[in-house]
Write a protein that binds this DNA or RNA. Sequence first.
DNA 1: TTGTACGCGTTATCAC
DNA 2: GTGATAACGCGTACAA
Lengths: 342, 342
Amino acid sequence: MVQGDPTPGRRRQPTLTDVAKLAGVSIATASKALNGRDQVSPTTRAKVHDAAEQLAFSPNALARGLLAGRTGTVGLLTSDLEGRFSIPVLMGAEDAAGEGSISVFLCDARGDSIREQFHVKALLGRRVDGLIVVGSRTDSRPPLRGKLAVPVVYAYAPSQSDDDISVVSDNVGAGRQAIEHLLSIGRTRIAHISGEHGYAAAQDRAKGAMLALREAGLRPAGDRVLFGSWTESWGRSAAAGLLDKGVELDAIFCGSDQIARGALDTLRERGLSVPGDVAVMGFDNWQVLASNARPQLTSVDMRLEHLGRLAAQRLFAAMDGRVEKGVHQIGCSIVVRESTAG
Amino acid sequence: MVQGDPTPGRRRQPTLTDVAKLAGVSIATASKALNGRDQVSPTTRAKVHDAAEQLAFSPNALARGLLAGRTGTVGLLTSDLEGRFSIPVLMGAEDAAGEGSISVFLCDARGDSIREQFHVKALLGRRVDGLIVVGSRTDSRPPLRGKLAVPVVYAYAPSQSDDDISVVSDNVGAGRQAIEHLLSIGRTRIAHISGEHGYAAAQDRAKGAMLALREAGLRPAGDRVLFGSWTESWGRSAAAGLLDKGVELDAIFCGSDQIARGALDTLRERGLSVPGDVAVMGFDNWQVLASNARPQLTSVDMRLEHLGRLAAQRLFAAMDGRVEKGVHQIGCSIVVRESTAG
DNA sequence: TTGTACGCGTTATCAC
DNA sequence: GTGATAACGCGTACAA
């Protein structure tokens, strides 16, 4: 049903002038009354509040921002909305923002630097008070181009410049934690199956894992880290490869939950029990995959929401003049489920 | 490293006045030149553009919006960011918005109506030109409270009021399409395993499936639709139940990809081949699950990104005075993979 | 072709 | 305690 009516049922938003008129005072007084200034009598204050209520008045943040020089908005520039990393970060950021009644502009650059430039420009035009840039991989990225008039915080993927503020997960530490967990339940012949070799995430986690193994006087089962792709099928074939070669193992640390799901499949098909014969760990703690696995999957959680919240807080601090340059690492946690129980 | 410096390296954004001054003209002329008004000589225009470039001038959208009465922003109110439904809708909306240089304010109400009210108020204060409300389930929802000054479009979850604009997936049609696909590859003993009974999504899909079966003169294998939960484990146990009861079947239509993954697991364990003995279909076309399944899973795609784009377009139309009230249904598509091949 | 002046809605500063 | 008035940055009639 198409209605020709130009502005159907939509009325101009009431302004402070309307409120003042209705309350029978000047706009100056109305402003003071609404903003809790103490240079106004209780009775007038009540009158003004009544009028505002009646008109459903909500102050124009644009006018306010124009005057104040700050808009109470931040820009959130993400590279992959469909990815599962941006979202929790985004939630954490929105969370932290909400506490201070500031709103978030969302833009998705889709990994395209042209589009990124475009969005930065749009955000700057909207006079955001700050910018959070969320990456889709943990690899470091080039900083935003040009001297920006507002502070920027890089989340998940750090900026290549040390002059910038970055907040990231400690993937090396996470690799170490994973191995230490497996050691703590008595496993010693531990294989590590990870994702694409070219990813910093794969490299870092492997590095941490190797460090922990070495410190325990061990080598990885199969003698080397297996890099492949971030898929279930790679998890299946990599695990099958290990078993076919007769590699002795009592645990597998996987670089992602998807890989772990694949490994679990292979183990079950070969008649090996998890965690009885082989313990299995994933990475990402992706609920849908980890909780629905058989058995449920122990996994490393990067606490991305926490990361997002921290990124936002550092941004607010920077907006406030308290800049803490450099890369800040967030520790990961391990969510223990059945696949490493006992 | 903490720096006490109050506003480190941040300089006031250049204004039109700065540009005009640098170009040696009045701000009126500068404005005309930058906005492509044709009442300005080519030479002056060039001078102004040079100055603007040099200062990296970007017009203050707040001031502009204050004057124009429109801000070029829309609010996106979602209920579950972590859910996999909001995101594609959000992407589509952002997509459609980007084409017209409109920016999106994102807010997550987390299913809490108090929080929702709060965000609506904040968005209205920021003078968004319109609002998109994205649900987390397909069930209809109560409309936003109060007479709003801007148009609203409900996406994925329709408003309960027919006076509102809603854009949703056609789940009944999707159920029908799924069955028709299975019939087209020669299957006739088709079971339907779905999710929680209380979800409109489950009801609608089942309804469509039953309609298509009835029209083909068939009844569902097992004689009734199996409702349970949206999990892999329900898919496993429901499929096992059917086989244990000796129900004859050559196809299973599942209410979600998760359920389908579970069903696939059971079938494989029972030594049944897919699609040879039993064809399997999922719902949602969730890449991670569908593409990594063994065999890869045929699934119904709700085209959520398309839905989001359409919702945004209807919003823009409404902002323009062209309101099309009522619930608009988007047809779903079927992505055929190995699990129903042949 | 160019410049002057007003107004968008708000807050802050000053008189009264 | 209250009310004019000047900003904030921009677009645009209007006058020059």
